[in-house]
Design a protein around this nucleic acid. Structure first.
Lengths: 137, 137
DNA sequence: TGTCTATATGCTCATATTTGCATATAATAT
DNA sequence: ATATTATATGCAAATATGAGCATATAGACA
């Protein structure tokens, strides 16, 4: 990572939405599907999508595409990123970060064979779907 | 520190000038006079002054005034800040952070009894002044 | 008193960023 | 094919930000 890019990197994280997305990816320690992030954060899809683009341009996350589905994860090959992710993990305590992670856990319970198999699930339908599938969190 | 203030705090550090100022304060582990910061970073006085105001509003630094002189230091009472400062210290490697710190060391050599006794010193005059005072760095 | 000097701040302009919406793209399912 | 779904993106309006310069403030000192 180059010189004044340090500040640029922090600027990317200096936005509530992007920081929440980044925290979810860092703290969950899993590759997350875009729709899972959208549901966990309860934000418009385009906001999450745009945030992910910016995090990717900043070299912070990477995507594995699987058909139309996209799985994002932190880019850990970069040594400087490790410092950054450790910090994000510690720094983002309290709300809304805690709830975001809770919501994600519920959403992840709907996976099958480790893969996301449903698209957007409005919060109110989540409970119903989970009961139907017999999952508990 | 409150919820979405986490992102706000990072936004403040997401600017090259403010990050350089913050790094200098964190890494030098001393209270620094505004003019010392101006000289070390070789930036216009108003830029440094404005940066300090923003860092202060964000609760990251504090100032002890001594007549017209202002000594700034990181605000370490806040626990979250400790995490932040540790991170800034590790994250800001390379240039221009390294040179900034070098320049500061030279500038600090002009102190007397631990206090700043000169105002702005253009880089070219620093050498001269130091020789006159018989200081080495 | 008046003059320096250290620091802060008001103002303006150019530029960047955010937000929301609509739509594009491309894969899958019927 | 057509419809549906997951994701990305282009655009416009509102707003925020950074750079630069001039100036204000207020303490020190002659």
């Amino acid at each position: 990572m180059e010189a004044n890019l340090k500040a640029e990197t922090l600027k990317i994280l200096g936005d509530q939405t992007r920081l929440r997305v980044a925290y979810l990816l860092v703290a969950s320690k899993r590759s997350l599907c875009v729709c899972e992030i959208v549901d966990a954060l309860n934000l418009p899809q385009y906001q999450v999508s745009k945030s992910l683009v910016m995090l990717r341009r900043a070299g912070l996350v990477e995507v594995d595409r699987n058909g139309t589905w996209g799985y994002y994860h932190p880019k850990v090959e970069d040594q400087v990123n490790e410092v950054l992710f450790g910090f994000v993990n510690d720094f983002c305590s309290g709300e809304p970060f805690g709830s975001d992670l809770d919501n994600l856990q519920k959403r992840l319970a709907l996976r099958e064979a480790g893969k996301c198999v449903v698209g957007f699930v409005p919060q109110k339908e989540l409970q119903k779907l989970m009961r139907k599938k017999g999952v508990t969190v």
